[in-house]
Design a protein around this nucleic acid. Sequence first.
DNA 1: CCTTCTTGTTTAAACGTTTAACTAAATTAT
DNA 2: ATAATTTAGTTAAACGTTTAAACAAGAAGG
Lengths: 334, 334
Amino acid sequence: MKLTIKDIAKLAGVSTATVSMVVNNKDERISASTREKVLDIVDKYNYIPNRIASSMVTKSTKTIGLVIPDITNPFFPEVARGVEDKANIDGYTVIFCNSDNVLSKEDAYIDMLQEKMVDGIIFTASSRRTNISASLQRVTVPVITVDRVIPNLSNQGQIVVDNEVGAYEAVCHMLAKGYKRIFHITGPLTSKTARDRYNGYLKALESNNQQPLPNHLYEGMYTTTWGHNAIEQLIEDGHDFDGVFCGNDMIAVGVLKGLQKHGLSVPTDIGVVGYDDVNIARLVTPELTTVSQPKYEMGYKAAEMLIKMINNEHNNQSEYTLSTELIIRNSTRT
Amino acid sequence: MKLTIKDIAKLAGVSTATVSMVVNNKDERISASTREKVLDIVDKYNYIPNRIASSMVTKSTKTIGLVIPDITNPFFPEVARGVEDKANIDGYTVIFCNSDNVLSKEDAYIDMLQEKMVDGIIFTASSRRTNISASLQRVTVPVITVDRVIPNLSNQGQIVVDNEVGAYEAVCHMLAKGYKRIFHITGPLTSKTARDRYNGYLKALESNNQQPLPNHLYEGMYTTTWGHNAIEQLIEDGHDFDGVFCGNDMIAVGVLKGLQKHGLSVPTDIGVVGYDDVNIARLVTPELTTVSQPKYEMGYKAAEMLIKMINNEHNNQSEYTLSTELIIRNSTRT
DNA sequence: CCTTCTTGTTTAAACGTTTAACTAAATTAT
DNA sequence: ATAATTTAGTTAAACGTTTAAACAAGAAGG
């Protein structure tokens, strides 16, 4: 039988107000003896306050929603962990939702979260989301978008990463190591993220006085399979190349496999650089040189910013830019 | 301004009961015209029902808690995804919690989930949890333990995997391929999981008329680092070996790296087998032969079982055993 | 000794739903 | 025409908290 505050009040011979005050440490005005009496009963009967009921009156659920494409994608566990850690520190709880980058699923989740009265939402939207939807329009709580921006959404904070600089540095590194004919294999250029990386690549070539090669761009998916296919294609196309800069690590791993299959040695013949620095990057052979994104920090900062917005300690339209770090391993020459 | 059911009722010129009935499709007794009138207003004003308030009266939050050690461990994202998918199908929402295998964190989360009135909990407990804690004792909702069992916990369903058979088959495969001196590198034997795998290993030797080698067991952590260290140690110890069966894939990856460093070729000189079949297994070189655990299905089944228990469609003390599958890749001879 | 403060506690309304019990009107049965 | 039944909707209590306002009793001030 679950005990309520009323039961405890009766057992302790006080009012529910008193019990409420002592269990919430709002007990400046409560005498020490009463406090102890109440606490004894609470302990003895294992009283568990019903936060649903408190939420009704306080209008705060201490819950935030996290909408990501897919926790199974190695990029997201760390982000999620960052979110959860910061949330937990501040007494928040995280509801997590996998949208598979499907707009209708995203919207359904947004509605669900609103119904559950979350205090705020952290959202990595599909790159196909070109404008605000009805569900998003209904959102009244603060939203932090991470790595993606939702056009026309108010009450939005943003966590972004400087992808252009990250890509720029990576490609400069390749050029510095003597790779001269570098191709770019990437995911869909519909996302700003992908375009920024591509631009960084182009700028690096430019500032090293190189013309981009003809047909230097292979656009596909963010998967190992695509990486593998793309490099096969590239070889088949008869291109003369000695480097490939990849849109993410999964692609790079596929590229590594493809090159290996064709007996091309990395890093001696060909240099390969990935993006993200997922755990796999350190485990493949050769270990992958890659641009590390601060995944955990992205999640952590997102939660931090969101909580500040929830508490009105933060202006409503703000942006936080994190930077990347080039991790040099063994898929590029030393 | 957020509208409540009262506002909608007033706008539609009906009672809140009527609105409630139509938005919940309990409207057999409502006339078509009234229903339409209400629905129009609901649409027009973007009414979002407050599920917190409903929960108060229905005593069901349609929320479940998921407590795992660490989403960052590549084993768990798939489990979590399985849970979330099934939960979502049935209209449940998932609160996720990372315990880092720390008992006090586990307990704190269990308490928190109870306070938030979750309808049930899915729990992968630390292997150090040898008995039921005060927090667990307070739990009144159903709990499904996955891959771990909590002694003396009532109202518990269990999802387990037949690890002994999985290990047995793996080691039999190695023996069949001609590996004769197989060592076992694993994580802490405090968990039943680890012990079952070890027993499977021993049984396989036995049924192939082999004595276990002296000092055949290296017990450490479930990490790449430990795998690497252990194999170094093993080599240093001067053991004559031609195979290693690993407690999980992370260890196996470390072993692969160590072997490579010492110029030992896999699978020709040495056979290596992992356990779990995390995504990395397919990406290392050589691709890892491993025992696949049905991770997604474990999560999915756990959610399914939990939801059945919540709806009292399932007996309270039940167990579901899933089986493993040996995935033969290139770290063992063909 | 009366008034005013202070301290400690209680009262009761409010939060936004659901739902059992009730009612009024319309229909059917007798 | 009246009673019984059906249909369509309403009323009001309940869920378990928090918290502003009220209150009672004792202490201090004049």
